[in-house]
Amino acid sequence: MNEKLRYWMLVLPALAVMILFYIWPVLNIWGISVTEPSAGLGNYTRMFDSNAVRVSFVLTFRVAAITTILCLLLGYVLAYTISNFATRVRPLMLGLVLLPFWVSVLIRSFAWIVLLGRSGLVNDALMDAGLISTPIRFMHNELGVLIAMVHVMLPFAVLPMLTNMRGIDGSYMRAARGLGASEWRAFREVYFPQTLPGVFSGGLLVFVLSLGFYITPALLGGGRVMMISEYITYQIQEFLNWGLGAALSVALLVATAIVLLVAARFVNLRKTFLERS
């Protein structure tokens, strides 16, 4: 009994904060979505009828999906290199992967603006080199959002894959080659299947985080690439349309939950979110 009391005493403060500042507001949002401006499911019917909402949702899923795929491709190569080749520089490379975590997303996104703007570093360099005559539009379009999103999300893809790959002993590849498989074949048939859990974990993490991401798309999209979280802000801040904004938040939450539910069939969620080293 005493044990139990101590347990609750330890958990209580955090639980109180969560309930007061997170769960309670979320429930309120759900409430607002069916009461503002008038009681009923009016917000939801409006949401489903709205073309703009549909466009925004499609855009959100498209950006999240492309970001995930690019992060997985880049991240796989990076994780593979770090875990199999870099022996002396491994700590350095790991540090570089983790470095972005120590700089706020806001600052990193502004940094991309400096780089990608009309007269940003990239365009200036390309023009000075004579490769292009007019600046390329890197910003305020999907390309810019994608570039920055991939950069922000890359560590989330790399870390689960790295953990997974470092647990794979080199003797599997050697055994396969000793039994007659070429290097490429051994990689494809023996190594790659063993890395799939890490790929799924990393992919899921990036996808779910990307769905609700706000800062980077808002800054790099410049109001023209409106992903769902920015759309919600827009409704509430510009139009004071609390009801529709709340309904959209609920829709985003439900969409994310569905993604997780589907993913749970393929991925060990506990491992993905709770047991990363």
């Binding site: 002993d169 003797s171 599997y172 050697r174 055994a175 396969a176 080659r177 000793g178 039994l179 007659g180 498989a181 070429s182 290097e183 023996v190 299947p193 063993q194």
Partner: peptide, 18 residues
């Protein structure tokens, strides 16, 4: 190694887990 046609048994067996 794959061109030598020897077989090798490793200390940790290295059976392919998948």
């Amino acid at each position: 190694p794959e061109k030598r046609d020897f077989a090798m048994v490793f200390q940790g067996y290295a059976l392919f887990p998948t």
